[in-house]
Amino acid sequence: MQVILFCLRVGHHLSYSMSDSNTTDFTNPSTFILLGIPGLEGSHLWISIPFCTMYMISILGNFTILIIVKMESSLHGPMYYFLCMLAVSDLVLSTSILPKMLRIFWFGSIEIDFSACLTQMYFIHCFAMMASGILVAMAFDRFVAICDPLRHCTMLTNPTVAKMGLAIALRGAILVLPYPLLARQWPYCRTNTVLHSYCEHIAVVKLACADVRVSSYYELFVAFSVIGTDVFLIPMSYIQILRAIFRLPTREARLKTFGTCGSHLCVILVFYIPGLFSFITHRFGHNVPLHFHILFANVYVLVPPMLNPIIYGVRTKQIWQRLLHLFTPKQT
């Protein structure tokens, strides 16, 4: 996801000052200005309706997943632990963006404190990287379960799953930390207006009146070395999984085994395909309006947290049955 967020940066910035002209010197601004979706300011109220709906579905769905996994002892296994990690990362990611965005759309609250902006930047990129790492862990879980099922319980024990989760969290927390630290040290003397609805890393640092290539190169390094590795490992896992599936003797066995991967494959597609589309439109769609890039960037970080619990709830039999049990009146 870091690749996508990097590629959604903008090259031109609208000058803005709360009290004076665009030459106002604010080397260390106390606030930034978030414009929302530039070019669609008149439609902010209408745009907020689907965005708010997606956020509420995301909150309800991910909390439901967490509650069901906690209540149902049969779901206390590696795949569902990773699913809970993904639900938490989705909740933090969407919550770090939506409340402020809705305040912009509904109340015109376009100012954000400088430190709050850097904090939002950190949480967005950190938990996006965590989500990518969790998808890799889930692919590894499916790989072991299908290609070496006899060792699944011994390899992916609860302590091992906990260590994997900790490693994923530390990877995101440590590698993203330089983003706000570098952004804080740059002087901002051109404008404090961010052409975005949230504090995306490059959109912020490009406002600096300094050579910010260190920030740009570091984000590229993280994007291609870390996220690129994730994108490589997942297909490699599924190539081995598909080879194991096609070696099964019957069609029914192949379909049943492949069905255990269906939910995870759908989540992977929801997470990475919009990112690839965004990358292509940014690199080659030079005539695509800025508001389209920003609108799609918002949809990209809102849709996966909304769809992930729906996909797993519908396609995972144990979760679906437990959900029906919760909401079906008991017979007396």
Rank of each mutant, 00 (worst) to 15 (best):
Q2Y: 12
I4P: 06
I4T: 13
R9A: 08
V10K: 07
H13V: 11
S19W: 09
D20V: 14
S21I: 12
T23W: 12
T24N: 12
N28S: 11
L34D: 00
L35F: 10
L40A: 06
P50G: 01
I57D: 00
S58M: 01
I59P: 00
F63H: 13
I65W: 03
I67F: 10
I67G: 09
K70V: 07
E72Q: 07
G77N: 08
L83H: 05
K100T: 01
F107P: 14
D113A: 10
S115H: 13
S115C: 12
A116P: 07
C117S: 14
C117I: 04
C117V: 08
L118V: 03
C126S: 09
M130C: 10
M130N: 12
C147L: 03
H152V: 05
L156C: 00
M164R: 01
L166E: 09
L170P: 04
R171M: 15
I174W: 09
L175I: 13
V176Q: 06
L181Q: 07
L181V: 14
Q185N: 15
C189N: 15
T191E: 00
L195D: 11
S197F: 08
Y198F: 06
C199Q: 04
E200T: 10
Y218I: 04
L220Y: 13
L220F: 14
A223E: 03
A223S: 09
S225Q: 13
I227M: 13
G228H: 07
T229L: 12
D230N: 14
L233D: 02
I234R: 00
M236A: 12
S237Y: 06
I245H: 02
I245A: 02
I245M: 02
F246C: 11
L248I: 03
G262T: 11
S263Q: 05
L265T: 08
Y272Q: 10
S278E: 06
T281C: 15
N287P: 05
L290P: 01
F292D: 14
A297Q: 05
N298I: 05
N298K: 05
V299W: 09
V299Y: 09
V301A: 05
L302H: 08
P305L: 02
L307T: 06
N308F: 12
P309Q: 00
I310N: 04
Y312S: 07
Y312P: 03
G313T: 04
V314S: 07
K317L: 15
R322H: 13
L323M: 15
L326D: 15
P329N: 09
